[in-house]
Write a protein that binds this DNA or RNA. Structure first.
Length: 277
DNA sequence: CCAATTGTTATTTA
DNA sequence: ATAAATAACAATTG
């Protein structure tokens, strides 16, 4: 499920445990989510450490602990973070639990496409620092987008929007939402977009990120009760999986088809396939 | 049984 | 060599 704003939603949940100490680390080594990391080192590093802060970048979360310990979590396709009471008993697909005095921080992921990363050291780890600059950062310019589309000129724009090295945090529904707002057909080849369309794409990328973060993860300290509680019906989001769904703007039927390897939804009345060199 | 799923990566193809 | 397409990963649901 999780893309940019959902990832921030889950990070914010775990921030309930900020400044509290980890009493026990519960994990089963050998679980796929720990592929490529030393679970013994995680236990040694986090037991007794204090959770001092957290951040998100793209679809990755970073939790900082006292003693130069860094924990990364990626939610994959089906992962989520929860906060449970101190007497909570782990259930199926709970792969990783940080037990604190007043709560348990739980990472649950049925499909196990997600994963855990760990680093002990003074400086932040490479797997964190190498993540592309955020869409909402000053580095995400029209020129940068234009140059990237030129390099991926023969790929459908939908596939290009899913590339994390330029559109960090964008996933399947956000890509469809962005193209729908920018009125660009998902099968348009990246290199065929006019300068005006590139500007529209850039603008809608930023707008969808901003709106998604505010409505899904909540502004400031506020955290919505669930992920979708405040998403307006006017977004494509609610209509993209409905059979017989209608475009919220044109009221005409939506279309679903696989583009760039993912099921893609668009509004044919609004997003036209033209000038596909 | 078949097909589907909001992600990423390795492999194959062009 | 580069980039695009495809397969694979795993679990569950309809």
């Amino acid at each position: 499920m999780p893309e940019l704003a959902e990832v921030e939603f889950f990070r914010k949940r775990w921030s309930a445990g900020h400044s509290a100490k980890v009493l026990t680390v519960r994990l089963h080594e050998g679980k796929k989510v720990f592929r490529g990391c030393d679970t013994g080192q995680i236990k040694r590093g986090l037991t007794g450490a204090r959770l001092v802060g957290s951040e998100t970048a793209a679809k990755q979360m970073l939790f900082r602990f006292s003693g130069s310990n860094w924990l990364g979590i990626h939610l994959g396709m089906s992962g989520e973070l929860r906060v449970e009471p101190p007497d909570y008993r782990a259930t199926t697909h709970d792969h990783f639990i940080l037990v604190q005095k007043l709560r348990q921080l739980v990472f649950n992921d049925p499909r196990m496409f997600g994963g855990v990363l760990f680093h002990h050291g003074k400086a932040p780890p490479a797997w964190w620092t190498k993540i592309a600059p955020a869409i909402l950062s000053p580095a995400f310019t029209v020129d940068a987008v234009e140059a990237f589309l030129r390099r991926r000129a023969r790929a459908p724009i939908k596939a290009v929007l899913l590339m994390q090295e330029r559109f960090p945090g964008v996933g399947n529904w956000m890509a469809d939402e962005i193209l729908w707002r920018a009125a660009i057909h998902p099968k348009r080849l990246a290199g065929s977009l006019s300068p005006a369309e590139v500007r529209a794409l850039h603008r809608e990328c930023r707008k969808v990120c901003r709106l998604a973060l505010d409505t899904i993860a909540g502004k400031g300290r506020y955290l919505p009760a669930n992920l979708n509680a405040h998403i307006p019906r006017s977004w494509l989001f609610w209509h993209r999986w409905e059979d017989g769904g209608l475009c919220p703007r044109t009221k005409k039927p939506l279309h679903r088809e696989e583009v760039g390897g993912r099921t893609t939804c668009w509004s044919p009345a609004r997003q036209k396939l033209i000038r596909n060199m």
